[in-house]
Simulated scan of single mutants.
Amino acid sequence: MTEFVLVAGAWLGAWAWDEVVEELPSARALTLSGLAEKREVPAGQERHVRDIVEEIERLDLRDVVLVGHSYSGVPVGQAAERIGDRLRRVVFVDANVPVDGESFLDGWDSDWVREAVAAGGGSWPPPPVEQFVELGLTAEQAARIVAGATPHPGATLTEPAALTGTLPTLPATYIKCLLDGEEPLPAVTELLRNPSWDLVRMDSGHWPMFSRPRELARVLREIAA
């Protein structure tokens, strides 16, 4: 049976996937160190990669569809290389992808994030409700995100990814949420040139697990079929 492992992006824990998990009986969501119920656990980029790999190995999961949203595409892409034949497919939901030797903050206009981390004492504070509403969420959905969000550990954003070089050859799908811009980042576009990668478009904002959970679950089932 296909096992879906879902990893949320910045500020969020496993709870962010609750409505998607309801639609995918074989799915489990994972909270990364330094966030939500693990907020007191020290975390860097490598720790986040190990969080994912160790959980998959601990549960002895096979036929894994590993899903990363937004920030978590960086550790998820690295973990996908490390779990070997346990992987069925890696899926990036409107996510950044890892580039060897580069951090999450490299490759895009992220100066404003660096400034926010500096102002936040080394953590990236969650944005206010208004910012989420502007990006396609209802006031209720935005309030839910902010209520559950925790500051994101800054080291996970600045430490570089370490790849083995197999990511371009892995079976992979990139889900582009069109209300967040029609074109993926350049690093994603480069990976999509590989025959084992494909692109799916969703008419949604950046947080489809909140705004379109049933549709996202359906897309994930179709990808895994």
Rank of each mutant, 00 (worst) to 15 (best):
residue 1 M to P: 07
residue 2 T to L: 01
residue 7 V to Y: 10
residue 8 A to F: 09
residue 9 G to C: 04
residue 10 A to N: 10
residue 12 L to Y: 03
residue 16 A to D: 03
residue 17 W to D: 01
residue 23 E to T: 06
residue 24 L to M: 04
residue 24 L to R: 02
residue 24 L to G: 02
residue 27 A to C: 03
residue 27 A to G: 01
residue 29 A to H: 06
residue 31 T to E: 08
residue 34 G to L: 06
residue 35 L to M: 15
residue 36 A to K: 13
residue 38 K to N: 15
residue 40 E to Q: 15
residue 40 E to N: 13
residue 42 P to F: 12
residue 47 R to K: 14
residue 47 R to Y: 09
residue 49 V to G: 05
residue 52 I to D: 04
residue 53 V to L: 10
residue 57 E to K: 15
residue 59 L to V: 13
residue 63 D to F: 00
residue 64 V to K: 01
residue 65 V to F: 05
residue 65 V to R: 04
residue 66 L to N: 01
residue 67 V to H: 03
residue 67 V to G: 00
residue 69 H to N: 11
residue 71 Y to P: 02
residue 71 Y to S: 03
residue 71 Y to F: 11
residue 72 S to T: 02
residue 72 S to D: 02
residue 73 G to Q: 05
residue 74 V to W: 04
residue 75 P to I: 00
residue 80 A to H: 01
residue 81 E to V: 02
residue 82 R to Y: 01
residue 83 I to Y: 01
residue 83 I to N: 00
residue 83 I to A: 00
residue 84 G to F: 09
residue 86 R to M: 03
residue 89 R to W: 01
residue 92 F to P: 07
residue 95 A to Y: 11
residue 95 A to Q: 08
residue 100 D to W: 13
residue 103 S to I: 05
residue 107 G to H: 14
residue 108 W to H: 13
residue 109 D to L: 06
residue 109 D to M: 09
residue 109 D to K: 13
residue 115 E to S: 14
residue 120 G to Y: 12
residue 121 G to K: 15
residue 121 G to R: 15
residue 124 W to C: 01
residue 125 P to M: 08
residue 126 P to H: 07
residue 129 V to S: 06
residue 131 Q to F: 12
residue 133 V to R: 10
residue 134 E to H: 06
residue 134 E to Q: 12
residue 137 L to H: 01
residue 139 A to K: 14
residue 145 I to E: 12
residue 147 A to Y: 12
residue 147 A to F: 14
residue 148 G to F: 09
residue 149 A to S: 14
residue 153 P to T: 11
residue 156 T to C: 13
residue 157 L to R: 11
residue 157 L to V: 06
residue 158 T to P: 11
residue 158 T to E: 14
residue 159 E to Q: 09
residue 160 P to D: 02
residue 162 A to N: 09
residue 166 T to I: 11
residue 166 T to L: 14
residue 169 T to L: 10
residue 171 P to H: 10
residue 181 G to P: 05
residue 182 E to V: 07
residue 184 P to N: 10
residue 186 P to W: 15
residue 190 E to I: 07
residue 191 L to N: 06
residue 192 L to A: 04
residue 193 R to D: 08
residue 195 P to Y: 03
residue 197 W to D: 00
residue 198 D to W: 14
residue 203 D to H: 13
residue 207 W to P: 02
residue 207 W to Y: 15
residue 209 M to L: 15
residue 214 R to I: 05
residue 219 V to E: 04
residue 220 L to Q: 01
residue 220 L to F: 02
residue 221 R to A: 06
residue 222 E to A: 03
residue 223 I to R: 03
residue 223 I to M: 03
residue 224 A to Q: 04
